Amino acid sequence: MRFGLWVEPEMVNPDSDLYRKHPDWVLHLPGRTRTELRNQLVLNLARPEVADFTYDWLTRLVGDEGIDFLKWDMNRAFSEAGWPDHARGADLLWSRYVHQLYGIIDRLRADHPDLRTEACSGGGGRIDLGILARTDQAWTSDNTDALDRISIQHGFGQIYPARAMAAWVTDVPNQLTRRSVPLRFRFHVAMAGLLAIGGDLNAWSPEELAEAAGLVAEYKAVRHLVQHGGLHRLGEPGGEGPTVVQYTAPDAGEALLLAWRTTERHGSPRVPVRPGGLDPAARYRDSRTGAVHHGAVLAGYGLTLDLPAGDWSSMSVHLVREERV
């Protein structure tokens, strides 16, 4: 395990030496109270001296402490968004702020080429092509409830790639929704993105730890498909049947199917789906069961998923091209 830190470089506590020395460094408007949220004010990164200060302490922190990963969070909205001591502050603030933010990250990455970073803002609020060009992944949402995440991840995947989508297995009852979902289901949902574990492992039973170890190994065998494959949606969230996604290798040599079914009321557990993007002239072997399927049959008639009976059932299917015929 490598060393990472959660940082919020854009904020300052008013009860700090930095604020007492530079009260003009925060966003503010003359005559208005400086609104605190989470005991914080927002530093004005549009100011070059503020951007330089932020970069200097971050690069020293990463270098001096040997940090491998930064989760860069921004947990409050702008208020009193002004730059009163600049003649064109009202016009320049927003664009300058963003460019300076990007510049800090660019300089950090140049100084520390092996540093990995995660973009985060109020959950998943700061996800755009500019920030993704400079970071390795994005925190998708503070809502880690597996049921809700099916829809959240479905929406995220309309624009952004799965390799940028942080997806955590967290404890139950979920801290936000208080819903309890089986560990296997939580893992299979998180496998659709960048699988990580955010639970208290000391509180997990030996059986849960063993199951989790097996599911982590399962993900490691297929994560190249999730993170670099083409996405096919074979069953939509909220429908009568299960939600099913497929990730296919660029050369059609492998495919991964993930399926989630929340309740027995959503149709039969034996569900036919038609995988996309496979080679119709090849045979594919199911790496778990050993069953062999012809590509043309999969495309025309489909693959029957034998989901476990009961509520909160889920499964993964890994298909590997065996031979051409």
Rank of each mutant, 00 (worst) to 15 (best):
I197P: 13
E254G: 11
W168F: 11
G193R: 03
E323G: 12
A90M: 09
G66A: 02
E236W: 05
L58W: 08
R76Y: 00
A110F: 05
D64F: 12
A167E: 11
P272Q: 03
P250T: 03
V273Q: 01
S205F: 08
T144L: 11
R274P: 01
L209F: 05
P23E: 05
G124S: 02
R261D: 03
G290T: 07
E118C: 15
L225Y: 02
G267Y: 04
A162F: 01
R186Y: 00
V222K: 00
L92I: 11
E65T: 13
R2E: 08
G267P: 14
S141L: 06
E211S: 13
L298P: 15
R233V: 14
V216E: 04
A212H: 03
G199M: 06
V172S: 10
I131Q: 10
A167Q: 15
A196F: 04
V325N: 10
G157Y: 07
I104F: 04
L176K: 02
E236Y: 07
G124Y: 03
Y97C: 07
A196I: 01
A296M: 04
G31F: 05
A221E: 14
L225M: 09
L305M: 03
L305F: 08
R274A: 09
G290L: 02
R285G: 08
W168K: 13
R47K: 15
K220L: 12
A282K: 01
P84D: 00
T117D: 00
R274N: 09
N39C: 11
G130W: 01
G123R: 01
R109F: 00
S121V: 08
D145Y: 04
Q100E: 15
V317I: 06
T35H: 12
I104S: 04
L305I: 13
L92Q: 11
R324I: 10
Q40P: 07
E323W: 08
W83E: 02
G230R: 14
I150Y: 01
L303Y: 05
R32H: 14
L319Y: 05
L129E: 15
G193Q: 03
L93C: 06
M191S: 14
L195W: 04
V320P: 10
V292L: 14
T140S: 09
T54D: 10
R47V: 10
E322D: 12
W204C: 03
D136T: 08
Q227F: 02
A138N: 15
A146V: 08
G199T: 07
S151Y: 06
E254Q: 14
K220W: 06
A90K: 11
D306E: 15
R283T: 15
T304V: 15
G229T: 08
S95Q: 13
V26P: 15
I131R: 09
V245Q: 04
V325F: 12
P113C: 02
I131H: 05
R223I: 00
A221C: 07
T135Q: 11
L29P: 09
R60G: 13
L201N: 04
Y102D: 15
L115M: 05
H294T: 12
G290Q: 05
A46E: 02
S95G: 10
P48L: 04
A221L: 12
V7D: 07
I104Y: 06
P9G: 08
P161Q: 01
V245P: 05
D279I: 11
P275N: 03
E65D: 11
M315F: 00
H28Y: 05
V317R: 10
R285M: 10
T135L: 04
G124E: 02
A133I: 02
Y160K: 00
G302Q: 05
